[in-house]
Amino acid sequence: MASEGGATGYIVHHLTPLSVGEGFWKLHLDTLFFSVFLGGLFILFFKSVAERATSGVPGLAQNIAEMLVEFVDTQVKDSFHGRSALIAPLALTIFCWVFLWNAMDMLPVDLLPMIGSLMGMEYMRVVPSTDLNGTFALSISVFFLIFFYSIKVKGLAGFAHEMTCTPFGPKMMPFNLLLKTVEELAKPISLGLRLFGNLYAGELVFILIALLPPIVQPLLGFPWAVFHILVITLQAFIFMVLTIVYLSLACEDH
């Protein structure tokens, strides 16, 4: 499927998003479409289960949903010691949504772009988590929540005190502020970059495998896909757990 420009052209083509607009107001339509679509799948599934949720014998769908809910609930209860109506649903949404994003990676790299090109779309990048905008949207939202909860639990003064007077006491105030700012900023950046990096690299390897001769492709593609079952789940899990941990830290009063 190597088009004009050889291997490099093929790779670049695959990693270019379908976009409209220019400069900052450029919108990646594929990222937006697939993430909304997958979010819709997630919502539809869970909403239909929630509507029919019974305390009697659960069906298959309810079993799956309950497994996920209990799994997330356990993680939240293990790490987050406050009471909040937001954390657990937030964690569930993050886990399922990121997992669905990542799962797009398992589709053959050429399948959806080919269908897209038949429909007249020149570019298509199907995995929303290979778009920095996607992963940073999540991590920055989480950052805002950390900020919000820190102030809500500790109060504005308490938060200011923590930013300026820890870890080295009031005498080192500027240094403390710098250190804490870096620490707080590192959270969303590392969160977003970790997910992006893993999935981007994974997708890149799939594209490289797709460039190999057809005989060799399954030999490499199959193990990599199997390995990726682990990676996509793990990355979704890590994103969720770190979100819970960060928020639990934000809610902790010293």
């Binding site: 607009g21 990222t31 937006l32 949504w97 996607g134 949207a137 939202s141």
Partner: peptide
């Protein structure tokens, strides 16, 4: 990084 970020945040 562009406006997609904002769209994604709203969706989220």
């Amino acid at each position: 990084i562009n406006a997609t970020l904002i769209g994604q945040m709203i969706t989220f």
